[in-house]
């Protein structure tokens, strides 16, 4: 791909020497512009208030709480960086980070590939596309707690449907819900239950790929796979990137399904460390052990991890993602 050169802006020439462009003073807004701006501010002010009260202030306050010993009920006591030092020595922090990382690294690619495959299939469908779009999206409406319960039913090592199906082809399925090695794979697989939303996003992107590109590829003798690799994927790379980023963040914030399956009412005493994800540990520390200062520090650790990963993804995306109309 060639990188187009931006046309040079004409610079005023005075006496043959180049001078710095003169910064033009912004014209004073007219009364009608001011009225328009004030009206806009009034319209968005509910959102601004909501953002400040329910997002910005709690974020700032949590940064302060992460430097305190706070049990929810008594006044926070400033402890400096003690919570962060404690985190460095807490084996559960390392474990929960590791579990979260493994889950995300396995789940995001699988989820994206499955979503893309289903979107490609749907894109081929003609009359029945509307029905299948709805059918794929409906599971997304399932409450996450129900998905956690569903996991225990479908993946029961002894009587679950998954192992039943595996047994038809001579495979003895594992103890998905109790074996340390199979708990995260089970959670990854059940996450595909909600793949419908990504399918819809990718399908919308697929519908926007110009047909003449496919026609040109066909003329050049490209088969389905070649067209998918050389035309489809680059043309929907923006949507794919969106799915990957959103899903990566969701992966790092994995909570409800794992908690309801392995830490909820049905497992009030039995717990399995293999399902201890970052947000679950944060929740336990904050809302069960009432170590809200420590939980706030954990939240900031998770925030930094997610931010770093997202920045890396953004940097990598500059080389891999193409946006329609973009000039490089």
């Amino acid at each position: 791909m060639t990188t187009p050169v931006a046309p040079a802006l004409p610079t005023p020439a005075t006496g043959g020497s180049r001078e710095a462009p003169v910064r033009r003073r912004r014209a004073r807004p007219s009364p009608s512009e001011r009225r328009e701006r004030n009206a806009a501010l009034r319209f968005i002010s509910p959102w601004i208030v909501g953002f400040v009260v329910f997002t910005a202030w709690p974020i700032l306050y949590s940064a302060y709480l992460s430097l305190t010993d706070y049990d929810v009920i008594n006044d926070p006591t400033f402890v400096g960086l003690d919570n962060y030092r404690e985190m460095a020595q807490d084996p559960k922090v390392a474990l929960s980070l590791w579990n979260t990382l493994v889950y995300t690294v396995v789940q995001v690619p699988l989820y994206t590939v499955v979503a893309l495959a289903l979107a490609l299939l749907l894109n081929q469908a003609a009359r029945s596309a509307g029905f299948f779009r709805t059918a794929f999206f409906i599971p997304k409406m399932t409450p996450p707690v129900a998905v956690g319960v569903l996991l225990l039913l479908l993946f029961n090592g002894q009587y679950g449907i998954v192992n039943e199906v595996l047994s038809w082809v001579g495979i003895q399925g594992p103890s998905w819900t109790t074996d340390q090695d199979w708990i995260k794979p089970g959670l990854v697989l059940i996450s595909l239950w909600t793949v419908g939303s990504a399918v819809i996003i990718l399908l919308a992107a697929l519908r926007n790929v110009p047909n003449d590109l496919y026609d040109a590829a066909r003329v050049d003798g490209a088969g389905f796979w070649r067209r998918t690799r050389a035309v489809t994927v680059p043309m929907i790379s923006g949507a794919l990137f969106f799915v990957v980023v959103i899903n990566t963040i969701a992966g790092f914030q994995m909570f409800t399904e794992a908690y309801s399956a392995y830490f909820g009412a049905g497992n009030s005493t039995y717990r399995n460390d293999a399902a201890l994800f970052c947000v679950i540990y944060l929740f336990q520390e904050g809302f069960q052990e009432l170590h809200m200062g420590y939980a706030s520090a954990l939240a900031w650790l998770l925030f930094v991890v997610i931010m770093l990963v997202t920045v890396v993804q953004l940097v990598v995306s500059r080389r891999l993602v193409y946006y329609e109309g973009e000039q490089r």
């Binding site: 709690p58 974020i59 306050y61 949590s62 706070y70 006044d75 926070p76 909570f255 904050g286």
Partner: peptide, 17 residues
Amino acid sequence: MVVAALALTGCAQGTGD
């Protein structure tokens, strides 16, 4: 999640006496 949680704790001032 984190934001919602902290929103709940954000206004806490302790019980005092």
